[in-house]
Design a protein around this nucleic acid. Structure first.
Lengths: 237, 237
DNA sequence: CACCTTCGATACGGACGCGTAGCGGAACCG
DNA sequence: CGGTTCCGCTACGCGTCCGTATCGAAGGTG
């Protein structure tokens, strides 16, 4: 209307209230769970009139999806040249996110509601892919590098690596920040993927492990932590 | 009152309506999710008056907990003498249960609500322990048998074994009945727990494996399947 | 068979959330 | 600086669910 230039910029008031509503939605989602996310509660916490919510979203479903999408984060899979370091960095980032990220607190609720809400189901699938993708990528690279047996099912391997973290978060409720947890998981799973007789940690420089073990682990961890980025919804890039 | 003999038998009408209500609760829980479980909906599906529900339970929370408890199942950890067979039997049973059992469909919802409902939280903890317990037991036996490294963290090992199944059920939504899935998980994790250079299947009778490996696998699987039992709530044993 | 328990049906008041409507007033655009 | 747009406020009708009370009827008990 007033702004024919590609729709990039609209009324700032719109964006402001939009951001407030989304933030409030995420807050309630984390604090009180998905069923507590009502238009009225969101509006109240956002310091916004209920009508304003209905002006930009056509119901609580769209609102929830939008809010969750705004908290999505993508991790860049590290590529240090050694599977073990890559995986430890990746999983450490995932464990930390599961411990602190907003979407992690809402995870169970989303998984539950996704069974009946197609929009949430799609979001859930996207989220799952975002979590599994980097792990698969690291494993694929490792396989092409010869660090992982060629006939290994990387899908199952990814389940074995990421699964324990989600399991602890959702089911057993065991801590995710236990020292050495991620390393233990990786070191438990990795030998089963090794090409041939190459048990675990020590030496075992069988094929062509070009990078010395030890060291670099912390770097990979930090790198993964930094790579985690929050990108607000942004209608258009 | 009318029945001083240990309280075992009460008015049959009471038990009948109680069973109908619990069954209806479980049905709604599985079909439409936890938030759909309202006293009115339950009463309607059970063909029972709402008052009847309130006569035996004092609110929806107790009702849900009672219904879920009525679907609980316990598995007897197999003891074939070989970790691999034991674990495959155990996890196959778990995978099947996650695919079909009522509580599995309600799992995410319970995990979510457990965050704010102490009763559900307690139930969730019990459930998690029931799932992890047998795995830990099998691993502990295996360790005492020398099939697992003495310094292995069995808690983490249990996460690595059961985690992938829950992960597939709750997060990645990958199938649980994929052929060879359970075997692949076990064979991926087990080498990392092996005492010393002993990759996977063959021999490896390092320490004191007094029982021959192989065989018994199918038996263990079936045994685990049969061991899964549903025990109705029953106020008193 | 008489008694007592529990049942189903119905109605009620209250709370809450939905989604809509109408109204000034303030912020923004040009 | 004037017109437009969007806001926040308030109020409404509707529906759902809660938890309780009351009633006659059906069923079990002794």
């Amino acid at each position: 209307m007033t702004d024919p230039c590609g729709g990039a910029r609209r009324d700032p008031r719109l964006e402001r209230s939009r951001a407030a509503v989304l933030a409030a939605t995420v807050e309630i989602l984390c604090d009180d769970g998905l069923p507590a996310v009502t238009v009225e509660a969101v509006a109240a916490r956002a310091g916004v009139a209920k009508t304003t919510v209905y002006r930009q979203w056509d119901g609580r479903a769209h609102l929830v999806v939008d809010a969750l999408r705004s908290t999505a984060c993508t991790v860049a899979p590290p590529d240090s040249g050694a599977v073990r370091e890559d995986l430890i960095g990746l999983l450490a980032g995932l464990a930390h996110a599961l411990d602190t990220a907003p979407w992690a607190r809402a995870l169970a609720g989303v998984a539950e509601s996704a069974r009946h809400d197609p929009a949430l189901a799609s979001l859930h699938r996207t989220f799952a892919a975002d979590c599994r993708g980097p792990v698969l990528e690291v494993l694929t690279r490792a396989r092409s590098r010869g660090e992982v047996r060629p006939d290994a099912d990387l899908t199952i391997a990814a389940s074995a690596l990421a699964g324990p973290l989600f399991y602890r978060r959702l089911v057993s409720l065991e801590p995710l920040d236990a020292p050495g947890l991620v390393e233990a998981i990786v070191d438990t799973v990795l030998p089963g993927l090794a090409p041939r007789a190459a048990p675990a940690a020590p030496a075992a420089g069988a094929e062509r492990s070009s990078i010395p073990l030890g060291a670099a682990g912390e770097d990979a961890h930090l790198a993964a932590g930094r790579a985690e980025r929050v990108h607000p919804t942004g209608d258009r890039p």
